[in-house]
Nucleic acid binder design. Sequence first.
DNA 1: GGGAATACATTTGTATACTAATGAAAAGTG
DNA 2: CACTTTTCATTAGTATACAAATGTATTCCC
Lengths: 154, 154
Amino acid sequence: MDDMKHDPSNDSSGDAIEAYVLDEQIGYALRKANQRHMTIFGEKMLDGLTPTQFSALFRLVESPGPQSQNALGRSVAMDAATIKGVVNRLEARGLVMSRKDEVDRRRYVIEATAKGRELIKAAMPVMAEITEATMAPLTIAERRTILRLLAKLS
Amino acid sequence: MDDMKHDPSNDSSGDAIEAYVLDEQIGYALRKANQRHMTIFGEKMLDGLTPTQFSALFRLVESPGPQSQNALGRSVAMDAATIKGVVNRLEARGLVMSRKDEVDRRRYVIEATAKGRELIKAAMPVMAEITEATMAPLTIAERRTILRLLAKLS
DNA sequence: GGGAATACATTTGTATACTAATGAAAAGTG
DNA sequence: CACTTTTCATTAGTATACAAATGTATTCCC
């Protein structure tokens, strides 16, 4: 009888440490996949642009008009504190400009500069390379599948 | 002829800004899925244990003997600088202990305390909840698939 | 045995990322 | 119109994450 206490197969609730494989947990797997992608991104992207910086700048370049800082943040899934730092660094590098909104005086209006637009343009084929390198271990069908499943998780 | 310059369908190289959908990029999708998972984790996990802290502490609890700090880091995919901070915070909370290795005097040996082991034990059913909440949008088959594909990307 | 290469740990610096608190401006409501 | 709520932006604090530089200890190998 004493044996049962240490036999994981008797623990039907599944909360035994022995049965838990860290590498097969969704959070751990997401973190590691993201880690590898960011390494590839860092190796290939132009001018040391980071993934977040690329996302924010891309959104500014593709969108019709300028946007407020917070609105830009929401459109790339960054909170106010995070997007502030990103915009600051983009601005320090001359890729975006910000100015006070004259109508709504709480707001800052953020806009891509010509330099920022050109960098995004030049980065497009690089992004294709980054995607290819990241997705290389997957078949074409698997690439579609993982994007579909990740979208469901968001 | 002038029209062709602005028609994205003529750009067979696929590097036109218009054809690039940020939300469908692997990096962006990974970041957002990870973000949602970490929110769920933060809402449910005991004692404010973070995902990284949980991983490191879990590894210590499940492994037979104590480990050096760097070895522990490697086993949970964290570099030396990152694992140092994680171990410091775990130690400050009395969940792990570290001591100089008497054989190899470069090393610090890290070990889970009784308190750390009990926390991991108590966290196991919580992890099951976190996994369930994170995976909720997926069918059982899709859950298996995404874990398999994420593993391939790592 | 001794020099080169490697491994361990730390520190500094930069970049996300989120919480919570604050203050100012705008919007909504009775 | 006055009051409440919301929105915008900033700041401080905490926690990953990685690169690069440093110093010490160990291992490799001739």
